[in-house]
Design a protein around this nucleic acid. Sequence first.
RNA 1: GCGCCCUUCGUCUAUCGGUUAGGACGACAGCCUUUCACGUUGUAAAGACGGGUUCGACUCCCGUAGGGCGCACCA
Length: 476
Amino acid sequence: MSSPVSSPVITRFAPSPTGYLHIGGARTALFNWAYARRMGGKMLLRIEDTDRERSTAGAIDAILEGLTWLGLDWAGEAVSQYGRVERHREIAEQLLAQGKAYRCYCSPADLDAMRAKAEAEKRPIRYDGTWRDRDPAGAPAGVRPAIRFRAPQEGETAIEDAVQGRVVIPNKDLDDLIILRSDGNPTYNLSVVVDDHDMCVTHIIRGVDHLTNAARQMQIYRAMGWRVPHMSHIPLIHGADGAKLSKRHGALGVEAYRAMGYLPGAMRNYLARLGWSHGDDEIFATDQLVEWFNLEQIGRSAARFDFAKLENLNGHYIRHTPDAELLAQFIDFLPHAEGGKSLLAQVDDAMMAKLLRAMPGLKERAKTLVELMKNTGFLFAVRPLALDDKAALILKDGGREAIAGLIPGLETTEDWTALALETAVKAHAEAQGLKLGKLAQPLRAALTGTSTSPGIFDVLEVLGREEALRRLRDVL
RNA sequence: GCGCCCUUCGUCUAUCGGUUAGGACGACAGCCUUUCACGUUGUAAAGACGGGUUCGACUCCCGUAGGGCGCACCA
């Protein structure tokens, strides 16, 4: 039992390990985490693995890894719901003993028939209460019964929800749900209530898809005489077309976002703004989120997932992350990126130094780490460089001559720094009566093999005198 | 079919009866410029529809339409 006075806020994230941690789940976790932090409480993690058929160890790993990547930590060990089945059975038996539940001898086939009939007669599809008041003595031999909760049939059940407001559901629309399967295993609605109670959860924050369950769970809380936690049912995230999230739209595991080069900080910021707001604030650090986060400002309508905005935000985070830190994140990211491992294998101390020096120019031009990785291409490239079409054209179209004219001046440049090189090249341009672009683009083509890159003088500097001059001569 | 929920620019949202309905992303245009970006200036862009209530509705109520979620011996 929780203490009556100023009990600490305890939230929980309770995913079922039947797949990866998808974006909706990630946001639910974020809200639970942020709220717990805001209130000085803690978030627990419970794996809802009572469905032995569909739960996998791989999914559990993916969820834990996803949360960790996102920087969302939880208090204590993750709780396995399945590990608590005995306790769940105990409560089911208790309910049974108190007459608040009863044995149902209907077979799955019976129930299918019941549903089919209801559908044919255009009646709501619900359990018809066949065994609700029937004497178990008349039970068919050899049939193992399930245990059903004896739900109130009259009146209504109201949910006081911090997000949805007061939601009232007529009890006649809630049937007698099975709490213990005929094989003796508990079902979700029973397990959740028992666990949330036993774990002293004070605030439940989850998707609205659980709203109806909330009503059934409330009835179980009442039957047990337990205190009902505060509820917040947050709206779902939809795809760009407004329909259910599909793989194309973002119903990917968070590891996919990681592989696409999004920063965890940017993800947190983006996810926080999906359904929650703090005035006109768009970009805020996680500390700020924790300080501001509340339940009142969570909206009630579903939000569409918008990659363009995520990308913009991610670009902002990349640009504003200090070079060394960003480099560290980039290195961590490489193993998760397509083609990143082979690149990582080429990273030695010298390359790290180059990457660090190139980072200011690189991060200005990347919205994702994947883009940043692509833009490091000129650093990893080996001579003679492969030229793309545009670069080849630039060199063909007077570029070679421009470079030939430039080399002597570069060779004699004492100080191989962006600043000195810029001075030298500009002086040459002026002397020859050329626009800077007529020299810069050929340099870029020869130095990077492409027509776009960071500032050309930075490229020259980062590459170093020897390598840069070699690349230039290669092209003549 | 039954129940519940939702509806402000293309998208995310602010507004908690009185605003020229604000911001952000995206779009478009300009500036900056050695490319690409960044940055910067500006433009277009919204209260689903119909009734009420009120001196006054985006805001409150009802209805309609559209959308979402739920209705398993899944979670």
